[in-house]
Computed example of a mutant assay.
Amino acid sequence: MAEPVLRGLVLAGGRSERMQTDKGALQYHGLDQRQHTAALLGEFCPDVRVSVRPEQAADLPAGLTPLPDTFLGLGPLGGLLSAFQADPNAAWLVLACDLPFLTRTTLEFLVTNRQSARAATALRSPVDDFPEPLVTIWEPRSYGQLLRFLSMGYSCPRKALINSDIALLPAPVSAELRNVNTPEERAQAERELMG
């Protein structure tokens, strides 16, 4: 059986309440994080979409393809389900837009070690050893499972990964999975990335 095509999904539909400004619009690498993350994904995926709330779609920088949420109010799960609704036969390589330390090397490791027969291929979080759902390849077979979890009242993608048949890989460089959510974390990240 042929491996499902791998599409890219930048998760940028959050409200960024702790950051107090849109995390996707922040710049750490000369581009805003939506553009930077889409460019990373573009090295591995023929098609990259940016998951946004419907009212954010018009504000995306030129060259990015919005994928407005059709499952509203579910956070990252809503973006993922909306992607599967757009193409249920694709696998989706999902990246949150608030991972400024993530590099091509880590993505290449994830894609190279993809196990398409499983529901997903995820990296182990350095914080708690659980799967990191926002740096994961979700295979087409996970779509039905995610809908089933949602029907039971679970909207946490991590819970879905923990309770599914997945490949869980050690992160090559665990520091790359650090997300930046507050102004203090942003200032620290900027110092580190410029240093």
Rank of each mutant, 00 (worst) to 15 (best):
188 Q>A: 11
153 G>Q: 10
185 E>Y: 00
35 Q>V: 10
34 R>Q: 15
56 Q>D: 14
26 L>K: 07
84 F>S: 02
77 L>D: 00
159 K>M: 13
172 P>F: 09
59 D>H: 15
71 F>P: 01
192 E>W: 11
53 R>C: 11
113 N>R: 14
52 V>T: 06
49 R>W: 12
44 F>T: 12
25 A>P: 00
54 P>S: 10
146 L>G: 04
140 P>V: 02
132 E>V: 09
91 A>K: 00
43 E>G: 15
101 F>H: 12
99 L>P: 00
51 S>I: 08
97 C>D: 08
103 T>W: 07
171 A>G: 06
37 T>D: 02
171 A>F: 02
100 P>G: 08
62 A>V: 15
138 W>Q: 05
132 E>W: 04
133 P>A: 13
80 L>K: 00
73 G>Y: 10
128 D>A: 14
193 L>H: 12
187 A>W: 01
11 L>M: 07
88 P>I: 14
65 T>D: 15
126 P>R: 01
187 A>Q: 09
141 R>D: 15
63 G>K: 06
194 M>V: 11
193 L>D: 10
97 C>S: 14
20 Q>F: 06
67 L>V: 12
149 F>G: 01
143 Y>T: 02
57 A>T: 07
1 M>L: 10
168 L>D: 09
112 T>K: 12
74 L>Q: 09
36 H>W: 13
2 A>F: 10
108 E>S: 14
106 T>N: 03
66 P>M: 05
32 D>G: 02
148 R>E: 10
165 D>T: 13
4 P>N: 09
137 I>F: 03
21 T>S: 13
128 D>P: 06
187 A>D: 11
40 L>H: 06
145 Q>I: 13
65 T>E: 15
45 C>F: 03
44 F>Y: 12
171 A>Q: 06
58 A>N: 09
139 E>C: 01
68 P>I: 02
137 I>M: 08
27 Q>H: 05
53 R>K: 14
120 A>H: 00
125 S>I: 03
99 L>S: 00
126 P>G: 13
47 D>R: 07
23 K>V: 05
117 A>Y: 09
189 A>H: 04
139 E>S: 07
149 F>L: 05
19 M>N: 02
150 L>M: 11
